[in-house]
């Protein structure tokens, strides 16, 4: 504990945490609404999850168990360093198991395993404003949210269909929350959008550089925008995971050699490992006997 002496619990001072908690409470009260907050400088660059880290720091307690994923994986740089950060500054338990975690901070994925009541999913958000690329004026986009003028959002989807023949937006796919606010779900693949709908977990979104926090309380309606004749659909994969054989999970392509060889594996590493432990095998899985050596 001595090395903790120079830091407050979970890095942020208590006044800052209170400020952030107030923003979070307001965000929960108005699902999908972007609440401005006084984002702090964090000991990491913007784009590395400063918003998510501040939200996590404001809600984490000594008894929490933290899991951090980056694109679904627990072992990538961003995930490892944020996990280490909270181990150091809050001395909390950390895990890679989705089921064991009370707080999961994520960059760009929602775990495959269904979340449970009591869990909090914290998203790192680069650009919280879904209308931003079509309407550059913040004053105007705020007004559009206030007045529920969301025609512009469909202009983006229209452009997709006009150009590609289908809605080609595959990530950061806009959703309408509880029939009111249109929200950017952060750059998660649209594959994950249905998981946001009626989730038992609390979902919190933090954008550090843009200084916005928004939230989806448990059991909230989350609908992906679409057209009647071009309904929303998620990505499908033509093959199962090469390691665990899972069908219906989100796959990443992993390059195997410089001759064009590749394999598709679960982007959610914990999900994949748990399945393999239970004996599921994909066609490229290592022989368990060899792996044990």
């Amino acid at each position: 504990m001595t090395e903790l002496a120079t830091y407050n619990f979970a890095y942020l001072d208590e006044q800052t945490k209170r400020m952030i908690r107030r923003a979070i409470l307001k965000a929960i009260a108005i699902p999908g609404y972007q609440v401005p907050f006084a984002s702090r400088e964090m000991p990491m660059p913007y784009g590395w999850g400063t918003g998510g880290v501040q939200v996590t720091a404001a809600v984490i307690g000594p008894k929490d168990t933290l899991k951090v994923i980056d694109q679904g994986a627990d072992d990538t740089t961003n995930a490892v360093s944020i996990r280490a950060f909270f181990q150091k500054t809050a001395n909390v338990r950390v895990t890679t198991r989705t089921a064991e975690a009370t707080i999961i901070q994520t960059r760009h994925r929602i775990p495959e395993a269904a979340l449970q009541t009591g869990q909090i999913l914290v998203y790192q958000v680069p650009i919280p404003e879904p209308l931003r690329f079509l309407e550059p004026r913040e004053t105007e986009t705020r007004k559009m949210h206030a007045l529920e003028e969301y025609g512009l959002m469909h202009v983006k989807l229209y452009e997709d269909i006009a150009r590609h023949g289908h809605i080609a937006t595959t990530y950061a796919y806009p959703v309408k929350v509880e029939g009111r606010y249109v929200m950017d779900p952060s750059p998660t693949p649209k594959f994950d959008n249905p998981k946001m709908h009626n989730s038992p977990a609390l979902q919190l979104f933090g954008a550090g550089r843009e200084k916005r926090i928004y939230a989806i309380p448990p059991y909230t309606e989350v609908v992906s925008l679409d057209f009647e004749d071009h309904p929303f659909e998620i990505q499908t994969f033509s093959q199962p995971c090469a390691l665990c054989g899972a069908k219906g999970s989100y796959l990443d392509e992993v390059i195997l050699d410089d001759k064009g060889g590749s394999m598709f594996v679960c982007s959610d590493t914990d999900f994949c490992e748990v399945r393999q432990e239970k004996g599921h095998r994909g066609h490229l899985a290592a022989n368990p006997a060899e792996a044990a050596e």
């Binding site: 003028e149 025609g151 512009l152 469909h154 202009v155 229209y158 452009e159 269909i161 006009a162 679409d226 057209f227 009647e228 004749d229 071009h230």
Partner: peptide
């Protein structure tokens, strides 16, 4: 096309075709 269609989408038209 989207420039012309925007007002239609703004008043709730949700059929691309």
């Amino acid at each position: 096309g989207a420039n012309v269609g925007e007002r239609l989408m703004a008043v709730g038209d949700r059929h691309y075709g």
